[in-house]
Design a protein around this nucleic acid. Structure first.
Lengths: 229, 229
DNA sequence: TCTCGTTGTTTCTATGCCGATACAACGACG
DNA sequence: CGTCGTTGTATCGGCATAGAAACAACGAGA
């Protein structure tokens, strides 16, 4: 069954949280030069918009510099603090978007050893280390495609000199090339294949196509599990 | 300024979206054995809870198996479909949590070349490849600590045989050891340091401590940018 | 066949959020 | 010194959401 995955991001400070709606408002104030024009442009009431800005400022500091009088009657513009806040929000949202957009591999497995939140998990694709919250036995691991590094088997070092502890041999199943990046699926012996997001340049350098033998490596700290029991 | 980063995750199908509140309800139905008991336990009204379940089922299929009659008057339990749905939601939420909890490095830079959404960006830490949405010039790159692999400089291959295209030399600044994982900051010459989340085992194997020379490598596809202009 | 607590359905009501409206205060510009 | 469109403030009303309450229907078990 196919779902759409959605989210909304918030930045909290005290008991006030900055949400998408607030960001939209502040951005529009910046664009239109006044709270009034911004509210109108967004189809929102001025009074609520103004109140909301005051509320946000109580938590986040001065965000909007108001001026009154003059030819145009006055206006408002964002402070540097507000710009930084919006930039911070953008990055947060971009990261969440990354989660939603990036392909992922899900592996079912069983915890066989554990040291703190670092677990050793037996999966169909082999034994991997992963971060798993305490308490679980049966787990499901999630691994983002952009966390998987592919390399040529001949170059595969002994693994003692890198912090990427998980290392699986396999052969390339498919290469779905985009404009500048490609989604590569790798058969690693289990019932599911492993997805890796690599650049087009890497596809060429590693000569990736169906049948290419590769070593897929990924960090334990980038492999996260949730319990399923 | 320190913020709390929050999110809520949703799974959509058609025009119905499964939110945290719904997951909570379904889980409680499972725990208590009836919609009625679940609603009471959550301090919610039975009628709304029941209506919501029907609404969810119209989009997601049968989620709750109801029975009426018998000693206890009947009851409800979750279907396999519901269990799978909840598991799927858990993994999504876990991924978002990962974003919130994982340390990250932010690099300011400037796009000097671009091929599709893959950009070459000059930063204070050197030249890196990153995924940047079209249109930007000045960008801010975000790199998750769990996406950074550390390796010993002696073992650093020529880079043509791996798909981790970004490679930066540096020296370890700090090692913040947790129970089983450690957050390592690496001085890479710029004004900011690079954070890497590695296992305690890797700290030992690579002999990481202040002053250790390392090569930090990370994939272009795991480096995401947002424009700042 | 009766009992029981459930499911299923309807209606009323409380609440919170927000737009709409009205009006006072402001102050640089002309 | 008046004008102008802004900021700032208070109040009313609409709308959506959800709890409260009441009641019918159900059906396995005693």
């Amino acid at each position: 069954m196919e779902f759409s995955t959605e989210f909304d991001a918030r930045l909290g400070r005290g008991d006030v949280t900055l949400a998408e709606r607030d960001v939209e408002l502040l951005r529009t104030v910046d664009d239109h030069g006044s709270i009034n024009a911004a509210a109108t442009a967004l189809g929102r009431s001025y009074s609520r918009a103004q109140q909301r800005i005051v509320e946000l400022e109580e938590a986040f500091g001065e965000l909007v510099e108001r001026t009154r009088g003059g030819a145009g009657g006055g206006g408002s513009r964002l402070t540097d603090r507000a710009e930084r806040l919006l930039s911070r929000y953008d990055r947060l949202r971009a990261e969440f978007s990354g989660v939603v957009e990036t392909a992922e591999t899900a592996l079912s497995g069983r915890v066989v050893d554990r040291e703190g939140e670092l677990a050793t998990v037996e999966t169909t694709a082999g034994t991997v280390r992963a971060l798993v919250p305490e308490g679980g036995e049966a787990v499901r691991l999630t691994l983002r495609a952009d966390a998987v590094t592919l390399q040529s088997p001949s170059e595969s070092p002994d693994g003692d000199r890198t912090s990427a502890r998980n290392r699986v041999r396999g052969t390339v199943l498919t290469v779905d090339a985009g404009e500048s990046v490609a989604l590569v699926t790798v058969d690693v012996g289990g019932d599911v294949s492993l997805s890796a997001l690599v650049t087009a340049a890497s596809v060429e350098k590693l000569n990736l196509h169906r049948g290419t033998p590769v070593v897929a490596s990924f960090k334990a700290t980038a492999t996260r599990g949730v319990r399923t029991d």
